[in-house]
Write a protein that binds this DNA or RNA. Structure first.
Length: 407
DNA sequence: TCTGGGGTCCTAGGACCC
DNA sequence: TCTGGGGTCCTAGGACCC
């Protein structure tokens, strides 16, 4: 499965580079006393596990697990908050390092990337050679480890990478793809979550081989034409092999995708206090509107998310006559959507605001962007943005948030 | 003290237009 | 004039990923 060097005719040139327990590794790399101990990054009384060291995983701790459960499974674990500045710096450095190998780098998140090295094989003996080069540099320069999966398609590379963890390399040559994929549980496929796994199991599909041999029409009837076609391709390892390098902004950061901007927060305690809810909606509205302005975007649609004490969640959205990036407009819309729910004494766990239908601000006429009454508020927003840039994010806050602690 | 916060994409129904 | 079909927009919900 791994490592034959020098085979340049093999189309298996796609690397999936994935940092090992990234949040934990970065957060504790300067704290040697914690090395080898079970460490969990995450927390908050109502939070979940963001990342667990391999020692903590041995107790059964997993990402996205409620902290209460993680604590029960691994009472000796050290729990730390995520060191976001260091995590982001490390992620950017890894990205730079990958770009020195080839421009064909697609960051999927802070801790993983696809890299097509077909064009780099003049300088490297093989894809595995590239992988070892990258791993050595990440280890030497970032003092953390990563694993690399190599395959002819994205999904195969990703699955190979899972086999490589931690701190290893696995390459699946193009002619070994079906033998590699077919014994796997369908739930291991990228895009098959718990619900789809259950649904497929009800069709008698448990392994990828079962899925591959299910007649396509039957599969499409069960999961829809789109998902069916996609799953069929995954099962035969014929999904996309294209890497889309993100355009790079002058600051060097990958430009984030620009489809929506959201902010949500869980209350420390479920609440039925409307004043508290509206105040939180203001905080979320201010956050998303500020991000939109910073990105030069305006939104046509404002969406509200409300999660209740029983964890049921609903969304409501409204498309505005004119796109906006004005905090008060976003907040007013969110509050109207909230009021329209007609809640009385219903305990709320979380609220969130999301901007959708984003467009570039400079592509929209000013009078379409701003109604006459919005101008004053827009000016206030711009003044507030300037103050925040100069004095930090707590420099300017709406009066109703002044004495408030975060939820 | 069960269950975060950032997203993307898909589906499905109804409105509305041609 | 009793009824089609395609396309787009809006809304709500859900699955999934990191």
């Amino acid at each position: 499965m791994t490592g034959e060097a020098g085979d340049r005719s093999d189309r298996s040139t796609l690397l999936h580079v994935d940092m090992d327990a990234f949040f934990v590794s970065v957060t504790i790399r300067d704290r040697p006393e914690l090395h080898g101990r079970p460490v969990i990054v995450g927390g908050g009384a109502r939070g979940v596990v963001l990342s667990a060291s391999y020692e903590a995983r041995r107790c059964g701790v997993r990402s996205a697990m409620p902290m209460t459960r993680a604590w029960r499974l691994c009472p000796t674990a050290v729990v730390l908050p995520a060191a976001y500045p260091e995590i982001e710096a490390s992620s950017a450095a890894v990205r730079e390092l990958l770009l020195q190998v080839t421009p064909m780098v697609e960051m999927m998140s802070v801790d993983e990337a696809f890299v097509d090295v077909a064009g780099a094989l003049r300088r490297f003996a093989s894809p595995v050679d590239v992988a070892e080069h990258v791993r050595a540099r990440v280890h030497d320069e970032q003092r953390i480890t990563c694993s690399v999966g190599i395959g002819p398609t994205r999904s195969v590379a990703k699955l190979a990478g899972r086999r490589a963890k931690p701190d290893g390399v696995v390459r699946v040559p193009a002619d070994a793809v079906v033998d590699f994929l077919h014994p796997l549980d369908v739930g291991e496929l990228w895009g098959v979550g718990e619900r789809s796994r259950q649904r497929l199991e009800s069709l008698g599909v448990r392994t990828v081989a079962d899925l591959a041999h299910l007649p396509l029409p039957e599969l499409c009837r069960a999961v829809g034409p789109r998902a069916g076609t996609h799953l069929h391709a995954l099962a035969w390892g014929t999904d996309s092999c294209r890497v889309s390098p993100h355009p790079v902004s002058p600051a060097g950061a990958a430009r984030p995708s620009e489809r929506s901007i959201g902010s949500q927060a869980t209350f420390g305690h479920d609440t039925d206090d409307t004043t508290l809810v509206r105040r939180e909606l203001l905080r979320r509205s201010a956050a998303v509107a500020r991000r939109a302005r910073a990105a030069g975007l305006v939104a046509r649609t404002v969406a509200l998310t409300v999660r209740f004490a029983d964890f049921t969640t609903l969304t409501r959205s409204r498309t505005l006559a004119d796109p906006t990036d004005v905090t008060t407009t976003v907040h007013a819309t969110a509050c109207e959507l909230y009021s329209a729910l007609g809640l009385r004494r219903t305990r709320v766990r979380l609220v969130g605001v999301r901007l959708e239908g984003l467009q570039r601000r400079d592509g929209v006429h000013e009078q379409l962007v701003l109604g006459a009454r919005e101008h004053g508020w827009a000016d206030a927003d711009r003044a507030s943005d300037r103050a925040v840039r100069r004095f930090g994010r707590y420099a300017v806050r709406p009066a109703s948030l002044l004495r408030e602690d975060r939820p």
